[in-house]
Write a protein that binds this DNA or RNA. Structure first.
Length: 215
DNA sequence: TGAAAGATTCGCT
DNA sequence: GCGAATCTTTCAG
C-alpha cells in the first residue's frame, strides 16, 4: 500500500499522508465542505497511487432542494444516507462520474461534491486516463476529476479508508484563502453560497467571474 | 410506459 | 464563450 512512510530519518519535505479517520470529519455538511478544501485525496488505482489536493467542493446539506436525497432514499442515492465519510458515486449527463462524500448522521441524506483537485502524484497515469497533457485540465471539474482518479461505481458506498483504495489525508496545508460562491450547474435552490474553493487557484473549475466574486 | 431533467464536457466559432 | 451531445434516473399519467 502507498501508505505514508513515516520514518523518523525521513527529513525530506515529502508530504506525510496520514489517513483521516472518519470521526475526524465534521458532522455538519457545510463544515465538511469547507474542511475538505485543502485536504489530500489519495487513490490507489490499477496503475498505482495517485494524490491530489482538493481545491473545490460543494455542499448539499439536508433539506436542500438540490440534494439528490431530497425525495428520500432510492437505490441510486442510498450512499448519501450512510454515516459521514462514505463515497457516493453517480453518473450525470450520461457520461460524467461524480465523486461525493456523505455527511451527517446515518440515515440523513446529505453530502459534499468534490469538484476539482490539484494533481500531485501519479500524474502520468492521470494523463493517460484523461487523454490530456495539460496538468491544469486533469482534475478540473467533477467529471474530469473522477476520470483522472479512476472513480467508478465500484467505489459507491465504500468508506474513505486505505482498504477501500480511496481515502482522505491531511498534510498540514493551511487553508487561508477559502472563498465561497453559488454552486455550479444546478437549477434548484441555486442561490445558496455553498461552493467552496481556494481563491485564485489555477486548479478550480467554473467561470472566472464566479471565482473572483467576493464571498 | 413515456417524458423530462440533470451537481457536465468538449469542440467549434 | 456558446451550444450540442448523451443516457440514466426519476416522476407522472
Amino acid at each position: 500500500m502507498p501508505m505514508a512512510r513515516r520514518s523518523p530519518n525521513d527529513t525530506s519535505p515529502a508530504i506525510s499522508l496520514q489517513p483521516l479517520a472518519h470521526d475526524e470529519l465534521p458532522l455538519d455538511t457545510i463544515a465538511l465542505a469547507k474542511f475538505l478544501v485543502g485536504k489530500m485525496l489519495v487513490r490507489h488505482g490499477t496503475d498505482g497511487p495517485m494524490t491530489g489536493r482538493i481545491v473545490e467542493t460543494e455542499a448539499y446539506p439536508p433539506g436542500d432542494d438540490a440534494c439528490h436525497a431530497r425525495s428520500g432514499r432510492t437505490q441510486r442515492n442510498a450512499s448519501l444516507f450512510l454515516p459521514r465519510g462514505h463515497a457516493y458515486v453517480y453518473r450525470a449527463y450520461g457520461s460524467a462520474m461524480m465523486l461525493n462524500i456523505s455527511s451527517e448522521e446515518e440515515g440523513t441524506g446529505a453530502g459534499v461534491l468534490v469538484r476539482a483537485a490539484e494533481p500531485l502524484g501519479g500524474i502520468a497515469a492521470m494523463r493517460m486516463r484523461r487523454g490530456v497533457e495539460d496538468v491544469r485540465r486533469l482534475a478540473r471539474g467533477p467529471g474530469c476529476l473522477a476520470q483522472a482518479f479512476e472513480i467508478g461505481f465500484d467505489l459507491d458506498g465504500k468508506l474513505y479508508a486505505p482498504e477501500s483504495g480511496i481515502w482522505l489525508a491531511d498534510d498540514g496545508f493551511s487553508r487561508t484563502e477559502i472563498a465561497s460562491s453559488k454552486r455550479i450547474g444546478i437549477t434548484r435552490n441555486a442561490d445558496q453560497p455553498w461552493r467552496y474553493f481556494v481563491r485564485s487557484s489555477p486548479w478550480v473549475s467554473g467561470p472566472a467571474w464566479l471565482n473572483r466574486a467576493p464571498s
